[in-house]
C-alpha cells in the first residue's frame, strides 16, 4: 500500500487500530523525526492515546494534571522557543473549559499549537452530557485564525495530524472516542486542509458530512442509489476554512443539500454551509442533521446516532423530505424540471 506523505508507517502495520490509537502512532512517528514537536495532556494520556508519544519520547512529553486551561497557555508559551506543541484532551474540556485560553493565547497571539480533541460528539455516549461535546465546532470556528478539522476515520485522522503539524498556525482536530469504523480503505488519498473530498458524485442531491457522519452519508447514498436517487457525498473534513467552492458547486449542480454532523445544528458544519448558500442568492432545498438544540441522552453511540437521526437511516428519511421540498428555481439551474 502506498504511504501517505511523510509517513513511514501505514495502517497495515497494526490490526484494527482505532482513530485515537492511530493519531497517537502517527504523532509519535512525526515526533521521532521532528524534534520541535512536544506533546501535552491533562491526565488523559491513556484515554486519548497521546500516551504512545510518552512511551517513545518521554523527554518531550508533559502531563500537566487535570488543568486544561493551564495546558493550553503552557503550550502557547512553549511556541516562544520554536516548539510545536500538540495537546490532547477530551473535546468538551478543550473547547469549553479552556475556551478563552484557546482563543486568547492560541488564536489571538497566532501561536503554533495543535489541539487533538477526542471523545467529541456523543462518542462517549454512556458518560452523559458532561462528557459529550456537541458544541466544539461552533465555538472553534468562531475564533479568528483557527483551523477546524473533523476527520472521518482513523486513516483521515492520520493525514490530518500530519497536515496539521506541517501547517503554521493553530489547529483544532476533533475525533471520536476511538471505536469508529473505517471510512477510507487506506491512507492513500488526496488530503488537503480546506479541500473537501468528493467521495461520490450525484445529480439529485448532495450530502455534506463531517467526521463520523461521512461513513453514514456514504451508506445512505448507496441505499438511495438502489432506489434510483443519485446522491453526491462530500467529505467536508475541514469545517474551517470551509471549501466554499465545493459547496457552491453542489448547490449549482444538485440544488438540494443535506448536512450531517455529530454536533449541534447550531454553529457547526450545517450553519457554515447554510451561510454559503444564503450568500449565493440561489434557491435550494436544505436540511441540517445533528442535535436539534438539545443535550443528548445517555446511551450507546450507535443508538444515539440513530435516535438523533444522524445515522444512515436518519439521512435516508431526510433525503425523502428534501427531494419533496419545493423551492423557487432560477435561470441558473437548467436541470430544474
Amino acid at each position: 500500500m502506498a504511504k501517505a506523505q511523510g509517513l513511514t508507517w501505514t495502517i497495515d502495520d497494526a490490526d484494527h487500530m482505532t482513530q485515537a490509537e492511530i493519531y497517537g502512532e502517527v504523532l509519535t512517528q512525526i515526533g521521532l523525526k521532528n524534534k520541535r514537536v512536544v506533546a501535552l495532556t491533562a491526565d488523559l494520556a491513556r484515554s486519548t492515546k497521546i500516551g504512545k508519544f510518552e512511551e517513545k519520547i518521554p523527554e518531550r512529553f508533559y502531563n500537566v494534571g487535570i488543568a486544561e486551561a493551564n495546558m493550553i497557555a503552557v503550550a502557547a508559551g512553549m511556541t516562544e522557543a520554536g516548539l510545536i506543541p500538540v495537546v490532547s484532551t477530551f473535546a468538551t474540556f478543550a473547547s469549553m473549559r479552556a475556551a478563552e485560553f484557546v482563543r486568547t493565547d492560541m488564536c489571538y497571539q497566532k501561536r503554533n499549537v495543535k489541539i487533538i480533541a477526542t471523545h467529541s460528539g456523543t462518542s462517549f455516549g454512556q458518560a452523559g452530557t458532561t462528557h459529550h461535546c456537541t458544541e466544539d465546532l461552533a465555538i472553534m470556528r468562531s475564533f479568528a485564525g483557527m483551523t477546524v478539522i473533523a476527520p472521518a476515520d482513523a486513516f483521515e485522522t492520520a493525514r490530518a495530524v500530519a497536515a496539521a503539524i506541517d501547517f503554521d498556525g493553530p489547529v483544532y482536530i476533533r475525533i471520536g472516542r476511538g471505536f469508529e469504523p473505517p471510512m477510507h480503505k487506506s491512507m492513500d488519498f488526496d488530503f488537503e486542509i480546506g479541500k473537501a473530498i468528493k467521495l461520490r458524485d450525484g445529480r439529485d442531491l448532495t450530502i455534506i458530512a463531517t467526521g463520523v457522519a461521512v461513513l453514514q452519508a456514504m451508506e445512505a447514498a448507496e441505499r438511495a442509489a438502489g432506489n434510483g436517487v443519485s446522491v453526491r457525498v462530500l467529505d467536508m473534513h475541514t469545517v474551517k476554512p470551509l471549501d466554499e467552492d465545493a459547496v457552491r458547486e453542489a448547490l449549482m449542480d444538485t440544488r438540494r443539500i443535506i448536512t450531517v454532523e455529530d454536533h449541534s445544528v447550531i454553529g457547526g458544519l450545517g450553519d457554515a454551509v447554510a451561510d454559503v448558500i444564503a450568500r449565493s442568492g440561489k434557491g435550494c432545498a436544505f436540511k441540517k442533521l445533528g442535535y436539534q438544540d438539545c443535550f443528548a441522552m445517555v446511551g450507546y453511540y450507535e443508538d444515539l446516532q440513530h435516535h438523533y437521526g444522524i445515522d444512515a437511516d436518519g439521512i435516508i428519511d431526510a433525503i425523502a423530505l428534501v427531494l419533496k421540498a419545493e423551492f423557487e428555481a432560477d435561470e441558473d439551474w437548467e436541470d430544474e424540471i
Binding site: A76, G77, M78, A81
Partner: peptide, 9 residues
C-alpha cells in the same frame, strides 16, 4: 501559565 510554557520551552 504562558511564562511557565516559555520557561519549559
Amino acid at each position: 501559565a504562558l511564562g511557565l510554557g516559555a520557561a519549559m520551552g
